[in-house]
Amino acid sequence: MAGPVLDISDVAYRWRGQAGFSLTVPHLSVAKGESVLLLGESGSGKSTLLSLICGTILPDQGKVTIAGTEITSLSGGARDKFRAEQIGVIFQQFNLLPFASVRDNILLPLRFAPIRRNRVADAATEAEKLCSALGLPDHAVEAKATALSVGQQQRVAVARALIGQPPLIIADEPTSALDANSQAAFLDLLFAQITAHETSLLMVSHDPRLGERFDRVIQIEDIAQIERAAT
């Protein structure tokens, strides 16, 4: 794949019902296999930026291109399907469906992404492989999601994001709920997997100490501006 995995140009978004608030992103690009850390405090528009990338909200102007497809031109249903195929998402916490088994949680994105499913020969075995690669105990796949510790749950979320090898992983402060030791272990495992699969990673955090592991660290203020009308 020649072009960047993620490319944003001249995007502007205005929050509905909150006149005067708007986010503009002139340019942001993530290359294939590149890991990027986006640093910013809360309220800096990180969540909105991630929603724009994932296509759950549409910019008022500009283009969001993922793996060569301009998602801003797709219909709502097509964007949902496209997201399932191209992007693995890891949240800050509460990533998993509490009532489902670890295996069902990992296999869930394949349900919405036939191309990712076809990339996996035997989905159940692949889920187990990912679990052991991420240092989860044996038979963890059988367990209910809520039976695992927070750190283990975050690793299951990584397995879910990675299964079927989507080109881009979006992680929204995935380590903030973990203590320092767990953070390091978590990042080791995450980086081992994205390096092995040549997956691009865009992680959002407020913690600059994580920066040394990443190919590139960006301050959100440098690429995006939030405008607030005078009150």
């Binding site: 994932c54 759950t56 709502g76 249903g77 949902d80 399907k81 997201r83 399932a84 195929e85 998402v89 949240f91 990533n95 998993l96 469906l97 509490p98 869930l108 994105p109 349900r111 919405f112 992404a113 879910r160």
Partner: peptide, 12 residues
């Protein structure tokens, strides 16, 4: 729960 489904690619 619904947000997780949405993130995984489920349509509304």
């Amino acid at each position: 729960e619904m947000a997780i489904f949405r993130a995984m690619g489920a349509r509304p």
